[in-house]
């Protein structure tokens, strides 16, 4: 099996400060990788470099295109990269309003990516939108409501539907359950797990919530001060952490 994504020597600096430095990893089809670390550890900087929102100073982010060729998305042309991000890639923001059009109906939000890749049949677009709303447990009768009328959990599920409707192969998630009630979180996590398995998605999830990665991620990368301090199988890193920082992180989790 060949990797879907090869990340090599990614470094990003903010002036003299390190955003993230010398990050390397391969992501295989169907793999879900978690990136954990405290605020300022560089996990969001790294995610934004991978997703093309920031340009790293060094390194390559090589992605397997549909024709099987590995292409460096850092140096590819902007139209190509933007095309990727509306077709093969998806990005789920922490705050749904960053990832949704708040003044466009739920159906329009889901349909946008379809229309962006050329769908021109209203009935089909709408049917697909309704289908996806169902898959993220939003009832059909809400299809014409705007996200402003939705609860936080529903907005987040709508954002996921909007992203997955074009059948992406790689999903970036930035704190997808942040700011949600625990009961709403659980529902969202279950939904994400199901979608990842059904669609064979690969995903990179940035979070500071170790319970989230334990449930969602196959592998874990622990970051501190812009550097990767530990990687491995999720349950192994959490149950038998090797690095001093990871041990501190794991032992700092409050028990319920």
């Amino acid at each position: 099996m060949t990797p879907l994504l090869q990340v090599q020597n990614i470094s990003k600096f903010y002036g003299h400060r390190i955003g993230c430095q010398d990050v390397n990893f391969d992501l295989y089809p169907g793999e879900v990788m978690g990136i954990v670390g405290e605020s300022g550890s560089g996990k969001s900087t790294l995610l934004n470099c991978l997703a093309g929102f920031l340009t790293p100073e060094t390194g390559e982010v090589r992605f397997e295109m549909r024709d099987g060729e590995m292409r460096d998305t850092v140096t590819m042309s902007e139209p190509e990269r933007r095309m990727l991000s509306r077709t093969d890639w998806a990005f789920v923001h922490q705050h749904a309003r960053d990832g949704l059009r708040m003044n466009v109906s739920a159906g329009g939000n889901v349909g946008e990516r379809l229309m962006a890749v050329g769908a021109r049949h209203y009935g089909n677009i709408r049917a697909e939108a309704v289908d996806w709303l169902g898959r993220v447990e939003i009832s059909e009768e809400r299809v014409d409501d705007r996200p402003t009328q939705f609860s936080g959990g529903m907005q987040q599920r709508l954002q996921i539907a909007r992203n997955l409707v074009t059948g992406p192969r790689l999903v970036f998630m930035d704190e997808p359950t942040g700011g949600l009630d625990v009961s709403v979180q659980a529902r969202l996590l279950d939904l994400l797990r199901g979608l990842v398995r059904e669609m064979g998605l690969s995903a990179i999830i940035v979070t500071h919530d170790l319970a989230v990665v334990r449930l969602l991620a196959d592998r874990l990368m622990v970051m501190k001060d812009g550097h990767v301090v530990e990687t491995g199988l999720t349950d192994q890193v959490l149950d038998d952490p090797q690095h001093a920082y990871t041990q501190l992180l794991v032992s700092s989790v409050l028990q319920v």
């Binding site: 491995g232 199988l233 349950d235 192994q236 149950d239 038998d240 090797q242």
Partner: peptide
């Protein structure tokens, strides 16, 4: 047992 399962390194 946990080492066999890969849970411990």
């Amino acid at each position: 047992m946990r080492m066999i399962y890969g849970n411990y390194l």
